[in-house]
Amino acid sequence: MNAIATEEERVMMLKVWWQRNRGWLLGLVVVFVVGFFGYKYYSGEQLKRAEQASLLFTDFFGAYEANDMERANTVAAQLQKDYKNTPYANSVALFFAQEAVDQNDLAKADEQLSWVIHNGAGFAKDIARARLAQVKLAQQQPDEALKLVNEISPGSYQPLYDDIKGDALVELKRYSEARTAYIAALEAYRALGFETHLLQFKADALPQG
C-alpha cells in the first residue's frame, strides 16, 4: 500500500478488496450461519426426542412397578424401536433383565443385557456387562463370565468387575487369583468409603494357596 494514499484512494482500495474477496467471505458467512442453525436445530430435535422418551419411560416405569407387564411391554417396544439411542431404551432393558431373573428366565435376562451391551452407550453398557457376567455364572459358564469382565477396562466400575471376577475364578478353582480380585475390590470400595464385609468373608473362605 502507498503510505501517502489519500482517503479517497484508501476507500477505493477497500472497495476493490471487497469486490475481489466478497465471494468467499460471504460463502464463509453462509457456511457459518447454516452450520450454526443446523446444529441448533439438530440438538433441539435431539433434546425434544429425549424429552419424549423420558415421558414414555415414566409411563413404562409406572406400569412396571404396578406389575402391568402388558402395558410395560408395549411402551418398552416403542422405546427400544424409536428411541434406541437414548438411555431410556437401555434402562428398559435393565429392568426387563431384572424381571427375567425374578422369573428365573436366565436366557431372557442374557438377551436383554446383551442388547444393552451391543446397542447401548455410557454407564448402562458397563453395568449391563457386569450383570451379564453374573447371569453367565448362574448358567455355570465361568469362562464366559471371566471373558466378559476381562474384555474391557471399565474405569470406576472396576471393583464391581473384580468382585465378579473373584466369583468366576473360584468356580475355576484359581483360588489365589480369586483372592487378589476380591481384595482389590474390597480396597477400591473402601477408598470410596464403603466397607464390604461380604468381600472380606469371601476372601477369608478361600482354600489356602
Binding site: 438411555p87 434402562s91 431373573v101 453395568i127 447371569v135 466369583d167 461380604l198 468373608f201
Partner: peptide
C-alpha cells in the same frame, strides 16, 4: 433420579449369590 433409578431399581441378585452370601454371613 432417573439415572439413579436406572441403576439402583434394576439391580438383581442371582440365587447362587444369595446362597453364597447366606452361607458366609450365617456361617
Amino acid at each position: 433420579g432417573q439415572a439413579r433409578g436406572a441403576i439402583v431399581d434394576s439391580s438383581f441378585v442371582l440365587p447362587y449369590e444369595l446362597d453364597k452370601a447366606i452361607a458366609l454371613l450365617e456361617q
